[in-house]
């Protein structure tokens, strides 16, 4: 006697499509890109795209855990701007004391991780302990960080000390084996994230909380602690992304990181993570980030449509990518 009446039809055949959907979408985007412009496949272009994906990508990996655990963080873009602002101010202030050298850069990096972690902790405490809706908390902190950085910059731009810029610049522009540091760091974060999500109790607990918080509570999962950790880790990853970002232009303003939060969330969802939580896929997020960057890149390279429509094309592809997965999901 089996429970055949409630079991589902076989799902092997189309399951693969569901799993590889984002990957196929990325390949399709790349084929289109290559057919429109030959320089698309040049190593320079591809490394450019990978490097510029790194900031959002690093953040999106952290966002994957937050969303998998049933949360959301709208504050990451503003947080990145704030962290960058604080980092630049601290480093500028310490130049006379420490001199423009590697130790000062290290201090700057530590500052970024610390400020990011603290900002994430603040979100986490309000959400997990005080139990305020994540959407509201992070919407609020988004406004706070955005205003703070504008205020710190006095409405203008905070620029890194010129002598420091020379020392720090290689962190964005150089690397090893032809790969720049942002790409390497992004790759490491992605691999660690994937391992954590799939192969550690932490990842399992995040998914359990997102799927059904009650079940997690009854299964002796430390829900508040795990949930808070997702925000703290995300905050630290924002700090890490900022460490890669600041050497690129050496500045931060009220305009830095605008809409990063939405790009990160979109990348997570394109990658197959469920927006309401319960299931997360870090490698999918990586693909999602790359898809978004590639689309922008192709639109710049090809100018087939009016640049006024760039946003529309990105929107269509984002929705399509998710619809494709939904189609195949109904089969399993």
């Amino acid at each position: 006697m089996t429970d055949a009446s409630t079991s589902t039809p076989p799902r092997r055949m189309r399951l693969n499509f569901h799993v590889f959907g984002p990957l196929l979408a990325m390949v399709a985007v790349m084929v289109i890109g290559a057919s429109l412009n030959l320089s698309f496949l040049s190593p320079e272009n591809l490394t450019n795209v990978a490097a510029r994906s790194a900031f959002i990508g690093i953040i999106a990996v952290g966002m994957t855990f937050v969303i998998t655990a049933g949360g959301i963080d709208l504050s990451v873009g503003a947080m990145a701007a704030f962290v960058a602002g604080v980092m630049i101010m601290v480093m500028n202030a310490l130049v006379p004391v420490m001199g423009a050298g590697v130790p000062l850069i290290m201090v700057g990096m530590a500052t970024a991780l610390l400020v990011g972690g603290a900002a994430g902790m603040l979100n986490g405490v309000l959400i997990a302990k005080v139990r305020i809706e994540a959407f509201i908390v992070t919407l609020g902190s988004m406004g706070i960080y955005r205003s703070l950085v504008t205020w710190l910059a006095d409405g203008g731009t905070l620029s890194l000390d010129f002598t420091l810029r020379g020392v720090y610049r290689p962190v964005y522009y150089e690397g090893i084996l032809g790969l720049s540091w942002p790409i390497i760091v992004f790759a490491i974060v992605a691999i660690l994230g994937e391992l954590a999500m799939r192969h550690t109790a932490y990842g399992r607990h995040c998914a359990a909380i997102g799927a059904n918080e009650q079940v997690a509570v009854y299964s002796a999962v430390k829900v508040a602690r795990v949930r808070m950790a997702t925000y703290v880790v995300l905050g630290m990853l924002v700090g890490l992304a900022t460490i890669m970002y600041v050497p690129r232009l050496g500045s931060a303003s009220g305009n830095t990181g605008v809409l990063w939060e939405l790009e990160a969330i979109a990348a997570v969802i394109i990658g197959g993570t469920v927006l309401k939580g319960g299931f997360g896929r870090v490698w999918g997020t990586v693909i999602g980030v790359l898809i978004l960057s590639l689309i922008g890149n192709i639109l710049n390279l090809a100018s087939i449509v009016s640049p006024y429509l760039n946003g529309a094309i990105q929107g269509v592809i984002v929705i399509l990518a998710v619809v494709l997965q939904r189609e195949s999901k109904s089969a399993d």
Binding site: H205, Q214, A216
Partner: peptide, 23 residues
């Protein structure tokens, strides 16, 4: 509502409470 994660596999449900034994 409180005992099982209905959308998750048998394996993940089975080990959720005693996950540290497998980790």
């Amino acid at each position: 509502d409180k005992g099982l994660l209905l959308g998750k596999s048998l394996r993940e449900n089975l080990t959720l409470l005693a996950l540290d034994r497998f980790t």
